[in-house]
Design a binder for these strands. Structure first.
Lengths: 206, 206
DNA sequence: ACAACATGTGAACAAGTGTACACATTAAGC
DNA sequence: GCTTAATGTGTACACTTGTTCACATGTTGT
């Protein structure tokens, strides 16, 4: 295979997907976007859309896949940086918040998709959250922090943790991306939520 | 004032608002609805819309107000029926789930609005949730169940409770309205979440 | 070099959109 | 009963929408 010429393959595809993210980042809702609007934002003729996607839901599903990559990157960074257990929550939530800012549009899209119009996208995002929760359960087991919990109870706990963190996305929506004070408040509150949950888990028995 | 004739005042207004709820109940997202589509569903000519609302966001805001009434009715029913404290969680979650089924469209609209396109609607729904959480805190204080918690910690706990219940709305979206088994699963899981949170609150200190 | 293919483009269409205006009907107040 | 305001209706206009088609261009494999 030789080196690529002027136009990289899949360049328009990327432009279309990031056009959606741009519009979502500007406050638009995915469900209200049309093909023409997206192609216009991407600087491409409407017909090009069909070269890469069958319809908007198709594009949304591929965005969910990219979202999965973003989440995995975040998870890896958390695993590398959270070494000692005592600051586990603070570190993890901090990494989450900074990723949510760096990839704001992806997380906005995620928050929208959970109650969005496309069932397939809903399921995709829910599936990503389940995977995330199960990985979290694995990590907690490995760190020997939850030996007294049954597998089912640990899964439930991690599910609740992931949900609580995900819900804080709706808080982040409400503040402008550079309002450091408000973001710090959200970060602290999310930490307290998780601490409360882990205190509950530590005293859970039945 | 005399009795009303054929056309009740505000009849079209109601028809428009419930037309939106009908469409949302069918799986559509509020952000993707247009004036013409709503008036068509309501069996009304497009121009009538402007007699009652300035635009779709205006209608959405008035729907948030009605949602507030629905939530208050639910709260009243919970207060009447939850007498003994030992079954507090089961009873409350049960009442929530049954209300969420009876007013499915309202709660779908609520779940959508949290990450919706209109900032005003987002804020409205968040405000309803805050009110709900503060009322819950009052009740718990009155029942003498949380004497060891400071006001701030109690507020946080109730906030987390309300969020967890609200998040289960996104679960209810995913199942058809008559899938009793799945709904029962969601009910049980939500109960466990709340139990875990309350165990955490019972052992919370600092 | 040439065929096969993937990708981008412009014009075109029918259908749907938001909104304004003038007009009809009804309800309420004097 | 008459006036006034509120509410519903039909028409119209300028745009936007999704989608198709025929065609141009560039890339790849042989």
């Amino acid at each position: 295979m030789s080196e690529r010429k002027k136009r990289k393959p899949g360049e328009t595809r990327e432009k279309l997907m990031s056009a959606v993210l741009t519009l979502v980042g500007k406050g638009r809702h995915f469900a209200s976007l049309g093909i023409r609007e997206v192609t216009r934002q991407a600087g491409v003729v409407p017909t090009s859309f069909y070269r890469h996607f069958r319809n908007m839901d198709d594009l949304g599903l591929q965005l969910v896949d990219e979202l999965g990559l973003v989440l995995r990157r975040m998870m890896r960074e958390a695993r590398e940086n959270v070494l000692q257990a005592d600051k586990l929550i603070e570190e993890s939530v901090g990494i989450f918040v900074s990723h949510a800012q760096a990839n704001r549009s992806y997380f906005l899209f995620m928050a929208q998709g959970l109650a969005g119009e496309s069932r397939a996208i809903q399921d995709g995002i829910r599936s990503e959250m389940r995977y995330f929760a199960s990985e979290l359960a694995n990590d907690l087991r490995r760190l020997k922090m939850v030996d007294h919990l049954s597998d089912g109870d640990l899964d439930m706990t991690c599910d609740l943790v992931v949900r609580s963190v995900a819900f804080s996305l709706t808080d982040l929506i409400g503040v402008s991306a550079d309002d450091e004070y408000q973001i710090e408040q959200i970060r602290k509150r999310t930490c307290r939520f998780l601490q409360l949950i882990f205190v509950g888990a530590a005293h859970w028995d039945r």
